[in-house]
């Protein structure tokens, strides 16, 4: 039984199909990179995974649960920007990862103290303990994204969704963010979906690389057909195939 299952997903806006016939099954702990040209539905697919949108057809289930109708605790997310709360300090942002689910959205008394201690541990681990009392606006882009990831993980989601998380960062920061993400992953064994434009990044971080593309193309009406997963690469072992006994490299052919 796979951890994340997408069965026969179609999504269209009005009568414009965006993605069609997407089937996917992902094991727990896998890191899935999603690449594709702009407008090929990879962000749409991530929003479907997030349950921010509901598919026009088909269903996505995580850990055997029924298809979600709205975003919830089991899905963590980091966007390219606006991923942390600008009106909370860095420490409060991490605490919010745990406290948002309570009735008042905040902790009081001893609970607050304990949450702050945990937040400080998290901040030390993600290297932000020296800016704990600052507001996110004063941090660099890389630090903000690290904070966003730390905040998402504080809620202990079962799946982490990243929508071009490092798209706005400079190459150097991006490399250190890769290390950071790989460390975190080794630590938590989290199932991750990451949408990216950067193929190197996709193969470096992912266990699998999914390519979204339009298998059918009408030159007179480019938006007539939606995109689907056209390639599903095994990206382990540095993307070099045939290093293991059983391997699933497949080029999906759509009927």
């Amino acid at each position: 039984m796979s951890f994340v299952t997408a069965i026969d997903i179609f999504q269209s806006y009005g009568n414009r199909p965006i993605i069609e016939r997407v089937n996917l099954s992902v094991e727990q702990g896998e890191f899935i990179s999603i690449v594709g040209a702009s407008g090929c539905g990879k962000s749409t697919f991530l929003r479907l995974l997030l349950a921010q949108e509901r598919p026009t057809h088909g269903s996505i289930s995580i850990d055997g649960a029924a298809a979600a109708v709205e975003p919830g605790l089991d899905r963590g997310v980091v966007f390219q920007k606006y991923s942390v709360f600008p009106h909370m300090t860095v420490r409060e942002n991490i605490v919010a990862g745990e406290s948002m689910r309570t009735t008042w959205g905040r902790f009081f008394g001893a609970e607050l103290k304990a949450a702050r201690t945990r937040a400080d541990e998290t901040l030390a681990r993600i290297g932000l303990d020296h800016v704990a009392d600052q507001y996110p606006a004063t941090l660099s882009g890389g630090m903000q994204q690290r904070l966003a990831i730390g905040q998402a993980l504080a809620a202990k989601p079962s799946v982490l969704l990243l929508d071009e998380p490092f798209g706005a960062l400079d190459p150097g920061t991006r490399l250190s963010m890769h290390d950071f993400l790989q460390d975190l992953r080794a630590e938590t064994g989290m199932t991750v979906f990451m949408v990216t434009h950067d193929l190197d990044e996709a193969f470096k971080l992912g266990d699998r690389v999914l390519v979204f593309d339009k298998p059918r193309w009408d030159p007179h009406d480019p938006s007539a057909y939606g995109a689907t997963i056209t390639y599903d690469f095994d990206a382990r072992d540095g993307g070099i195939p045939f290093q293991r006994l059983k391997e699933s490299i497949n080029v999906r052919t759509t009927p």
Binding site: L73, G76, F79, Y82, F85, T102, T103, G105, Q151, A152
Partner: peptide, 12 residues
Amino acid sequence: VKAQTLGASSWV
């Protein structure tokens, strides 16, 4: 959306 993934209700 972020707040929702952290489990916040409409009220929160």
